[in-house]
Write a protein that binds this DNA or RNA. Structure first.
Length: 287
DNA sequence: ACATCCACCTGCTCGC
DNA sequence: TGCGAGCAGGTGGATG
């Protein structure tokens, strides 16, 4: 379940269903489930058994569970990953990638991932200065973190020579934003995706940050965006923010501000939705 | 260092 | 009905 609001919905579920429990057994399936953990599935399980999960944290779209020995169980949902808390006698879903049993004998935690772009890892290399596991050092803070600095973001994005949407999708500049919320934030801020980053004015960047925070906060409050059963919370529930989307997936529908038909354009092999009137194409844009 | 492209997957929908 | 093409919310490694 991909972007920040959906991952946050999962994090809240992990807090509810996994934190405070001690792992009794771990099984992983498929050779793409474990990432950057060369010791292999046997060692992965051995290192986790007996460990208590202390918290559920998130930076952008990355999740991690700090363990009582100082290591971190990392997870990324990719395009289709889910965590589900289910009764042990519930039949396995197709695409089950990992199973965590707990010493209390209660609900299992299952990691399910159809497209296998997601994965799990175990990182015991400590934390960065701003409190993320070392292996996430390349990921910028997301705009809800206290470690996020608006001033540093402004300087960093202006240093780039690229288009605005490319920049906000770059997780090393700002994390958590994906294709849906990029389009939604750009619409709210009335900015075109091809605006050249080096020409952005401070008020425009401030507007964009405010819009990104607002749209993602609204989406978190709605439990995230669920177009279909692939994207659900840990308890299996769908979010309903798709009803509040203003441009994403709304090609041909009227812009709620000005009535102009929303258009869809190809952009780096994916789609961008925008209002051609509220978000005028720049004379000299960058893609 | 930075910008861009492409590979990595499965499954659904659409048009022929 | 069958089949191929196109599309889907992401990341990171290779290549300029």
């Amino acid at each position: 379940m991909p972007e920040l609001p959906e991952v946050e919905t999962v994090r809240i579920g992990l807090e509810r269903w996994a934190v405070g429990r001690t792992i009794a057994a771990v099984e992983t399936y498929g050779d793409r489930t474990l990432r950057r953990f060369l010791a292999g599935p046997g060692e992965f399980a051995a290192r986790l058994v007996g460990r208590r999960i202390e918290a559920a944290r998130r930076r952008g779209k990355f999740l991690w569970l700090p363990l009582d020995d100082g290591a971190h169980l990392l997870a990324h949902l990719g395009m289709s990953g889910q965590f589900r808390a289910v009764s042990p006698d519930e039949p396995d879903a197709s695409h089950l990638r990992a199973r965590f049993r707990f010493t209390d004998g209660g609900t299992e935690l299952r990691f399910i991932d159809q497209r296998t772009f997601g994965g799990l890892s175990l990182d015991d290399s400590g934390e960065t200065a701003d409190g993320a596991p070392q292996s996430l050092a390349h990921v910028a803070p997301d705009p809800f973190e206290s470690a996020f600095s608006d001033a540093r973001f402004v300087a960093a994005i202006r240093r780039r020579r690229t288009g605005l949407k490319r920049a906000i999708l770059d997780q090393t500049l700002i994390s958590g934003i994906g294709n849906i919320y990029a389009d939604e934030a750009l619409w709210r801020a009335k900015l075109h995706y091809a605006r050249a980053t080096e020409g952005l004015r401070r008020p425009e960047i401030d507007r964009l940050l405010a819009a990104a925070r607002a749209v993602m906060a609204d989406a978190i409050a709605a439990g995230g965006t669920s177009f279909d059963a692939l994207y659900v919370a840990v308890n299996g529930e769908s979010g309903w923010f798709d009803r509040s989307l203003e441009v994403y997936g709304r090609e041909g529908e009227p812009c709620s501000r000005c009535g102009t038909a929303i258009v869809r354009q190809q952009f780096t092999n994916r789609s961008s939705y925008l209002c051609p009137r509220c978000q005028p194409r720049p004379r000299r844009g960058r893609w």
